[in-house]
Amino acid sequence: MEQAKQKETSSFQKWFRSRKGQQALVLIVFMSIPLLLLFIFTYLPFGEMVKFSFYNMKYVGARKFVGLKNYQDVFTRKDCFGALKLSLYYMVGSVVQLLLALYLATVLSFHVKGEGAFKAVMFFPYLISGIAIGFIFKFFYTHGYVWDTALTWFGFKLDQLPYWLKDQKINNISLVATSVWRYTGQNMVLFIGAIMSVDQELYEAAALDGANRWQQFKHIIMPSIKTIITLNVILSITGSLSAFEPPYVITDGANGTGTYFVIMNRIAHTSQKVGLASAMAVVLLAIIFLVTIAQKVFFKYFFRSADDEDPRAGERREKQIEKYRAKHAARNGEAHNG
């Protein structure tokens, strides 16, 4: 008995000292905390949310099982599912933002006077907190204040100008514009980075040979940033569906500016209808999930048709895309933008 035990411990010790044992030890020590946190703050709440969506409940107090009633409400209540229409504004906004960033990045990638200062000025809004941006634009859009004054400099008359945040014809556009203001510079910096990764001699050679700017753009710049642009376009779809920050901080969803998440947030934390809010969240997550799968399929198809000869290039790109998507999502998830 004694001997067997001793033998056991010694073989355990042997295993423990071996490379395999050391690896297992490292894995356990290094991965337990991140995985525990991931479980507690992501997957546990995810499961809870699905559970909540079948109940009529508040954060505290009794809960009642109601089956699919909450899901019915999501699709039939006027304020819930209909709010997704506003996403269209945000989609258009992100296309505008992308084009603008692309134009500016292209212009700046040729030598321009005051380049550094311009880049800094465009980028800085990205560093301001969402809540500060809310105050800045409440002030900016107030009737007769900053924006109206600037427009009168260009010949507009104050009494012809609308109330930017109250007029339902225009207020969603005003809100989307703040998002464009905030993220264009950041997109521009990303594009400049991609453009700069192209061998500079290529531009010089092209310029020497008299290729004009448009030709340089089409044949050198575009191919180098095609992937990042396509990705941004596609990501903007899920981003627009979950648009939240501009209406939340500027109008609090008043006057028909409440996007899906603003409404959900209000239902969850103001009216405390946690069940209904959870159902809303689950529905949107399902939509986002479907869109993401559709994007993957689209991407595979899109790039297979491209003139790619190296079969491993596709694999590499898949990897890159996955990484980029995760980083982008993480960045935006944390900033809670749209």
């Binding site: 703050f41 992501t42 949310m49 909540f52 947030n265 969850a268 946690v274 998830g333 809670h336």
Partner: peptide, 18 residues
């Protein structure tokens, strides 16, 4: 990767109770 797809605002509904 999947965790990064979940929008933070939506998750807070149930993170709050946790």
């Amino acid at each position: 990767l999947f965790a990064s797809l979940l929008p933070g605002v939506a998750m807070q509904v149930s993170v709050y109770s946790i």
